[in-house]
Design a protein around this nucleic acid. Structure first.
Lengths: 146, 146
DNA sequence: TTAGACCCTCAACCTAGGTTGAGGGCAAGG
DNA sequence: CCTTGCCCTCAACCTAGGTTGAGGGTCTAA
């Protein structure tokens, strides 16, 4: 059972010290104690909660919502239903995000494949020609190289 | 072969009109032509490129980098190597992002499972007791319900 | 010929999420 | 006893990515 300084925590989670202080200021770390000099003192349990915070942040949860979750945690077991609701909703959001990401990634891969195809230059030229024809047919200026 | 107004484009991509104008202002849409009144005129090819832009945005690419990609596209086939490099690098970033997301999601699921376990209340109480003991042993104040 | 629905620009404003710097305190080692 | 390296607060500043509103033009249908 030991304690950690803000620097330790920063290193462990690969965050700037300023960010940890910012999170504290924003109410995400109400559980962190202070020593006689006002210095933050982190315990192992604190690290556990911070790990959860980082995890929620990684998945894109806004800090306000994270703060809300932490406040529910402070309240003890009575808030379990609310915590469940909050996390379940967030989980759904993350799943959607994963979907979107995977789909977009596929399109990027399609582009990449085009670029590494043997006749990539020819294909791009053909596309450019199509654009040129389209713009010309509509009497519009064409910003592409031609 | 037809043309589209900014409103059409906004609807198609589910973006506010203001965002499309903002992207244009930021140099992401240099290929969009104007009619005699200064109104933007979008072609089918334009929509294709915008689809790519949206895709890059979805995967978290900063607008500055997207602009760079678009500018490479304007230059014709000579910029294929640079485009390839840019997209390959971005693809790697997206893969990492997916990894992180999946891992964080797992932790969230672990939490959720805890909360829906039959003896969730007991477990949470035990955790709280542990925290209380830890803080007490170190002579620190405890912010949790107890 | 006027109302409604489009379109435009430009400048101001906004939120999230931090970062930076000034000004100051405590403690250990030389 | 002083330098180095931690820690602190508070206020200012910053970037990204938009949004909003004023002020004004065009076109169509009643």
């Amino acid at each position: 059972m030991s304690t950690y300084t803000i620097k330790d925590v920063a290193q462990q989670f690969q965050l700037p010290i300023s960010t940890i202080r910012y999170y504290d200021e924003k109410g995400l770390l109400p559980f962190v104690a202070r020593d006689v000099h006002g210095n933050r003192v982190f315990t192992d349990s604190d690290l556990n909660l911070i790990k959860t915070i980082v995890c929620l942040k990684t998945t894109g949860m806004p800090l306000k919502q994270i703060r809300q979750y932490i406040q529910l945690c402070l309240q003890g077991p009575t808030s379990i239903p609310q915590r469940q609701a909050l996390l379940a909703q967030h989980k759904a959001a993350v799943l959607q995000q994963q979907q979107a990401l995977a789909q977009a990634l596929q399109e990027i891969e399609v582009k990449l494949n085009r670029y590494s195809a043997p006749n990539a230059v020819g294909m791009i030229q053909a596309e450019l020609a199509y654009v040129a024809q389209e713009k010309a047919a509509l009497d519009l200026p064409n910003a592409f190289a031609h």
